[in-house]
């Protein structure tokens, strides 16, 4: 009897958590939409990504149950993200510093379409 009551209250708590997380996610989605119509300069991208990060964290922590998970599962969860951050930084060494000047192996006629597209009409 006591076990059954504990199970029911456990389910009720879980249901409340899911409902609260769902409402929070929808509100954050609207905040993200609203922020896009404000003139914030680079802040628009930052706001969009920060809100997306919070939404992702809510899904991972509450819906995917990382809050209840053991260390091994938490480690597996952050491993992909950590590896991606590392690869992003390494890719940035090239892409963030690359100018749009053509390489010596590209012939002028090969570059004409790209140059034509980049000129404002």
């Amino acid at each position: 009897m006591a076990e059954a009551r504990a199970a029911t209250s456990g389910f009720a708590r879980e249901r409340r958590t899911i409902a609260s997380a769902w409402v929070a996610l929808l509100l954050l989605m609207l905040a993200s939409l609203g922020s896009a119509y404000l003139r914030l300069g680079p802040g628009n991208m930052v706001a969009g990504l920060v809100i997306a990060g919070i939404k992702g964290a809510i899904v991972a922590w509450l819906f995917m149950r990382l809050r209840q998970a053991g260390a091994l599962i938490r480690l597996a969860a952050v491993a992909g993200l950590g590896a991606w951050c590392l690869l992003l930084a390494l890719s940035g060494v090239d892409y963030a510093t690359r100018t749009l000047t053509p390489t010596p192996v590209q012939r002028p006629q090969q570059l004409l379409p790209a140059q034509a597209a980049s000129e404002p009409r």
Binding site: Y37, R39, G48, A52, G56, V59, A60
Partner: peptide, 21 residues
């Protein structure tokens, strides 16, 4: 399924909300 949701959570501002103002 949640992972697919998280991917969309990031796609939404990156694809739909650039320079809306």
């Amino acid at each position: 399924w949640h992972f697919v949701d998280v991917v969309w959570i990031f796609l939404y501002p990156l694809l739909y909300l650039v320079d809306r103002h």
